[in-house]
Design a protein around this nucleic acid. Structure first.
Lengths: 202, 202, 202, 202
DNA sequence: GCGTAAACGAGACGGTACGTCCCGTCTTGTG
DNA sequence: CACAAGACGGGACGTACCGTCTCGTTTACGC
């Protein structure tokens, strides 16, 4: 169990204070330099109150991140204007911009490297992003039905082609996360899974 | 400077012992659970002998990893049978297999997440892999000349399309690293940058 | 106030359970290693129920000890056969044996060292043993009247000479608590306060 | 091993700072309220430097106390004017005064109660006071030879009669530690072991 | 070959953070 | 409203390593 089970006895005030402290400290000093003690002190909370409800620093930060996106989570919908390429470019540009934001980077980078070592944390994160992944697949499927993707395209593979290069550039800082890069990724992926050329009718 | 400058006074025996100890300990217990003290003890060496020549644990492990591939490093050549697709599949399958090897994984995973936080280490690693990257680019260019890739394909982008999905699957364990996956990556990338179809003259 | 004021609302069942748990735990693990939480848990009681009625662990254990000797406390009478020496030897031998009993030792040792630091607890204990002290003094006075002690002997000093060496040997484990030791203490004290030798009239 | 083995590597500066801090803190706040962390902080020392050389807080304070009396320790000699009673009164009065000194009390009280629970510490203390005990016994023996004590008096028992009442009054605060009390103890003990009355020569 | 300066093993040092323990108080239902 | 249950802020515990800093002791060069 990575995330904390709510309990009627639990102090909501402390929970919020811990998550806020964790978020702020990580943004300020970076994931690695933040410890449980610092979070507890900043939150005005005993260490035990953290250990009681979370198994690790990763779990706390993870929940802090999740709490950020929780408000708007009601329903995830990606743009669907009918133009798959345009829509994907919009989304990937936004993703690239997000990765390029220092505050977001500070929060998410440490969490990501932590997930590379902690399978439980990774599983929790996957669960958290499942809805978003689904929405992405839905949009691709819609494009597929509209004849903008090959009918037998593996949509998961398409997603990996779109996002993995972005992810790798961000994590390893091997290249800039520009709108142009996002555009070219979309173009390449769509070319790779373009529907077969039509045969002109006689 | 991440790697150590050699000196005539330096004890080669200690250097080897430290690198071996670092490699073995990381493979045994994982990067995060290995500390400088443990490396020094296992190597039968004073801590200072490590701090004298390396700036961080990452640098030691990095050099330990580099030492592994140092023997065969004289000249890197990728297969070039004339069939770009076949050659790339060979290479990517090998890469996938390497990532799937537990010992390699243990060594390289911690180093990778460390690079995500330590720019110096990342720079050193990039330098170390520059030759290999070059070789990959060369093979693509050769294929390009042979008409198996569009003349205006961005070869770096092709490499990212090929390797980033592999990297991400490996790091985040989001999917299996099979030969089939490697094949499909190669096929997709080549389709994305296929040369323009010839228009038959009427 | 060291001891608890009784109240009609108070649960006698809880009170007994707490005292029993305290006694048992102290005998099992020693005074220092027993905490309020352990007592509460063993007694099947909330911590607050302890804090509501007792000010400290010392007070609980003290009352637990007192409860042991409460049954027989109606009237304290020391033996008075007319032979002071014999009677005192009997009593001191019994005291020595009591100190030598491991269960008694475990209970009383921690309480004693606590009293060395907590004046309130010490006062409460003194009050508790006042009747016994009185009885001892009575027996000495009786012997004094019978001409077995000097008429101007300071009976409190006699008691200190009798009991302090026993107490010190027990607390600091500086010697065995044997019947022989008890006997020799009695003999020495009585010699020290023997009535003046009669001068035979010529 | 309760006390610390000296080592050439050991920092004398740290050792002194720790003992001084321990002594001062105990005198200021009392044994029970002083912890290892406070000692380390006051001494400007890492906790580990304490744990490296001492097994417990008791051992540190014990050594701090011992260090106090170390200077004058060359040779212990008790006064021997030929008048045993006068000499003993001098010594016991001094002891009573020492116990009554608040700074000494603070230091020694906690240590004493600790010894009641920690046999190792008690053994170390006994060793430390062995020379003094010997000197006391010597003085008694000298008085014995001078015909001021019965030839078959058990000198250890005499010492217990002299010191135990003082000790008990001090520890349990059951009476004042006055010069008068010291005098009366000496008188009582000497009466108890007075040599047999001489037979007047005809 | 012989000083001498470095690099060495060893490990003590001042620190920081860990995760656990228990304190005494506070809060939340239940009987 | 006393009770059981137990969460809470607080803070000390003893451990593990960090990176720095002496200690003698090799060791291999320049004289």
């Amino acid at each position: 169990m990575t995330t904390s089970h709510r309990s009627p006895r639990r102090s909501e005030r402390s929970r919020r204070a811990i998550l806020d402290a964790a978020r702020d400290l990580v943004v300020e000093h970076g994931y690695a330099k933040v410890g449980i003690e610092a979070i507890a002190t900043r939150a005005g909370v005993g260490k035990q109150t953290i250990y009681r409800w979370w198994p690790s620093k990763g779990a706390v930060v993870f929940e802090a991140v999740r709490a950020l996106s929780e408000d708007s989570d009601g329903e995830i919908t990606l743009p669907d204007t009918g133009d798959l390429e345009a829509d994907l470019k919009l989304v990937l540009r936004a993703t690239a911009a997000e990765f390029a934001d220092p505050a977001f980077d500070a929060l998410i980078r440490g969490l990501t490297t932590e997930m590379a070592h902690d399978r439980e944390l990774a599983a929790a994160y996957e669960e958290h992003t499942a809805a978003l992944e689904d929405a992405k697949r839905q949009r691709l499927r819609s494009g597929q039905r509209a004849g903008q993707l090959s009918p037998d395209a593996d949509l998961d593979l398409v997603l990996e082609l779109l996002y993995a290069p972005l992810f790798r550039r961000w994590l390893l800082r091997t290249g800039p996360l520009t709108a142009d890069f996002a555009d070219r990724l979309v173009e390449a992926a769509l070319r790779a899974f373009a529907p077969a050329a039509e045969v002109s009718a006689p």
